[in-house]
Amino acid sequence: MNDSWTEHRVLEGARIRLEPLGDSHADGLLKAADDPDSIFRWSSTEIRDLESAHAFVRDAVDDPGRLPYAIVDRATGTVVGSTSCYLLEPAYRTLVIGYTWLSTRVQRTHVNSESKLLLLQRAFDDLGSVRVTWHADEHNTPSRDALRRLGATEEGLLRKHRRRRDGSWRTTALFSLTDDEWPAVRVRLEERLRR
Rank of each mutant, 00 (worst) to 15 (best):
T94R: 15
L102Y: 02
V61G: 08
T109V: 02
D63W: 00
A75N: 12
F124P: 03
Q107S: 06
V80E: 07
L120C: 06
E89I: 12
L119A: 04
L21Q: 11
R58T: 15
R48F: 12
N140K: 06
S82F: 03
L50H: 13
V80T: 14
V96A: 10
S52K: 05
R144M: 13
A32R: 08
G98N: 11
L87A: 10
P90A: 04
R108H: 05
S82Y: 00
E138H: 06
D34V: 05
T78K: 09
A91H: 00
L127D: 08
L30N: 06
S103E: 08
V80C: 09
R48K: 06
I47S: 13
K31Q: 15
D27L: 14
R41G: 07
R105M: 11
A14K: 15
R15P: 01
P64M: 09
P20V: 08
L120R: 07
L67F: 04
S44M: 10
S84Q: 04
V130G: 09
D34C: 03
A26G: 07
W134G: 10
R122D: 06
R66E: 14
L18D: 09
L120N: 04
T78I: 13
G28D: 04
T78M: 13
G28R: 12
Y99A: 11
P64T: 11
E51V: 13
G22V: 01
D59S: 14
E12L: 12
A55C: 09
D73W: 07
S38C: 15
T104N: 05
T83L: 09
A14I: 09
Q121M: 11
L147E: 12
L21K: 12
H54V: 11
E138F: 00
V96L: 08
